[in-house]
Design a protein around this nucleic acid. Structure first.
Length: 205
DNA sequence: GCCACCGGTGGC
DNA sequence: GCCACCGGTGGC
């Protein structure tokens, strides 16, 4: 299990350029597009590091220790929310449809979640945690540099993101929120496992 | 022959 | 009933 090598380019603090006049129909490298593109780029044995896997996902290689097939390596994939997948097929299906492929086991890596939800001596809590849908419309490569959040209706809980004077679509807004959650979980996990790395967030909304 | 993939199941 | 683990094989 490796952590250090899995860092994507800092997604939420990027200083990359962002075209604020980009049309809504522009295709962003969402996780699934990323996966497809990476796949078509490498016909043969996947490039080292499985570049088709979106950021925030983890790979675990497990070597069998007994039986006739001892020594064989099994590869498992973990979503940012901790869902365990047994094959690339299952992962791609999930990225594309947002649902588990029939036959996909519902296993969740209990080591994945932070302990912030766990009460004293109740290690099963993490099983109840639901994973946010994959944020298809979040541009992981070049997130917007600056987004303003404005209250659209006075006195109500109706905050909406703006880039410049342009209000961001609700569907995009939802994806941004999910993208943030994705990295929140992921970074929290890193923080839990690595004493040299601390990740802090403001009080949860 | 290799290996990615998925079926099966024993132990919990 | 769940899930970690091994068995078995289809496709290359």
């Amino acid at each position: 299990m490796s952590l250090a090598g899995d860092f994507p380019p800092d997604p939420l603090l990027s200083s990359g350029s962002f075209n604020t006049t980009a049309g809504a129909d522009q295709v962003h490298p969402s996780p699934i597009n990323w996966a497809r593109q990476a796949e078509s780029n490498s016909r043969k044995r996947a490039a080292p590091g499985d570049s088709w896997l979106p950021p925030g996902w983890r790979i675990e290689d497990k070597v069998r220790t007994s039986g006739a097939t001892a020594g064989i390596r099994d590869r498992y994939y973990y979503s940012p929310g901790g869902h365990k997948f047994r094959s690339k097929t299952e992962v791609l299906h999930y990225l594309e449809h947002g649902t588990l492929k029939k036959g996909t086991r519902k296993a969740v890596n209990t080591n994945f979640h932070s302990d912030k939800f766990e009460g004293q001596g109740s290690p099963k809590v993490s099983k109840k945690v639901k994973e946010a849908p994959v944020p298809f419309n979040f541009d992981f490569e070049s997130p917007p540099e600056k987004v303003s959040w404005a209250m659209t209706k006075a006195g109500e809980e109706a905050w909406a993101p703006y880039i410049g004077d342009d209000k961001v679509q609700d569907s995009v807004r939802r994806d941004w929120i999910n993208a943030f959650k994705m990295f929140h979980d992921w970074l929290t996990n890193i923080s839990d496992k690595n004493q040299n790395f601390r990740f802090y967030t403001p009080v949860d909304a």
